[in-house]
Design a binder for these strands. Structure first.
Lengths: 211, 211
DNA sequence: GCAAATTTTGACCGATTGGACAAACGTTAG
DNA sequence: CTAACGTTTGTCCAATCGGTCAAAATTTGC
């Protein structure tokens, strides 16, 4: 029942301020990376002094660590939901849709994650090789089952998952590029619906013209 | 004939040392981003003292700028080659293959670019909205022509290009994650061939099972 | 071989970094 | 009211940051 790291007792103010700091840190870390961000930046974004911030989080790394722990849970939730019940093609389509919605609604979280991976994942490598790999292997097995049953085409399930991650997260991580290329008209709010339509077709039928 | 920024006269040593610095800076910038990298790191990686490095590049930004200029040229080359002559499906397939080869052979360049975009592209925004947008619009028109001719399925050409960028660059930018998830066996040198096979099928036929 | 030009170095600068600390301030239970 | 506790602030610190500069070492043109 009791975990080795017992939950520390926190006052109401502590809970509120910690939340405020994490929100500010997400903003700063996601656009500058860990090394490129300063405690001052985060403190200012959170509307408090640096020593005050350090009262709630003793080290810069503690903030980042807390942020990453929370992130991984919500980030992997859509994949966890991918289930064997229901039509495979529908399951995959709704997974893609959910991931795209997360790129739209939580772009900072996506960029925070991308920053960490880009820099060699020094702080979450164990999680990748452990929890993440286990989960992906598990879902890859589910997908393989679908292939054996002839429900979807036979391919590499791992690379299929990668391609879903890549295409959806692209709209969060490379957002400024996407908007720059699409221009003011096509790059407006509708770009996510356009992306959803395109990805649905790509993963369903590919590009080969219908005979 | 003469460009406004005339090519500065450089000695043999200058050319060699500048190259050495750029190579070292590519290594450092691509893993730590601009703000997260220090001149000392680059100098040490290049095997020289900081003041010595600053003799060849007066400011940290100058190194990054030079790197980004070169990068964009080679990075967009594959897309430039995408041409109207030849079979559309073959053209697209070889574009995907070339991009995947670049992710394999020049991962640092890919990560350097990703870092810059992730952080809001503060130093190359004009290039994205200018040169890059122009090129993509041009190629999107070519692809649209193929669709009108019934050579490939009708979809959004811009998002098609995005999806090719995303899926291929994923293997450079998220390399540590890809290898962690695939594990020591499947994550070895063969992962790029597996990826190539998967992507070819995805973009050709999608996932729908063959009737 | 020698003078001029180029390259390298060590010492240094002001600004910023992550973080420590004690004092001051605020809040609350008795 | 007051003592205990939680919160906030100003000040300070050593380390590191990007960058300068003059002097020393080296290379180059003749």
């Amino acid at each position: 029942m009791t975990t080795s790291t017992q939950a520390p007792r926190r006052t109401r103010i502590q809970q509120e301020k910690r939340e405020l700091i994490l929100e500010a840190a997400l903003e700063v870390f996601s656009t500058s990376g860990f090394r490129g961000s300063t405690i001052d930046q985060i403190a200012e974004a959170a509307g408090m002094s640096k020593p005050n911030l350090l009262y709630y989080f003793r080290r810069k790394e503690d903030i980042h660590e807390t942020l990453m722990e929370r992130l991984l849970e919500t980030w992997l939730a859509p994949l966890r939901e991918l289930d064997d019940i229901g039509d495979p093609m529908t399951e995959l389509r709704s997974y893609i849709r959910r991931k795209l919605e997360m790129a739209r609604d939580f772009p900072r979280e996506s960029r925070l994650f991308a920053n960490e991976i880009l820099q060699g994942a020094p702080r979450i490598m164990p999680l990748l090789a452990g929890e993440l790999k286990t989960l992906v292997d598990e879902k890859a097995a589910v997908i393989k089952g679908w292939m054996r049953a002839g429900k979807i085409a036979r391919t590499d399930p791992w690379h299929l998952i990668f391609s879903i991650w890549a295409t959806t997260q692209h709209y969060a991580d490379f957002d400024v590029q996407v908007r720059a290329v699409l221009g003011p008209n096509r790059g407006g709010d509708g770009r996510f619906e356009d992306a959803a339509r395109f990805l649905e077709q790509l993963f369903l039928d590919g590009l080969k013209p219908k005979a």
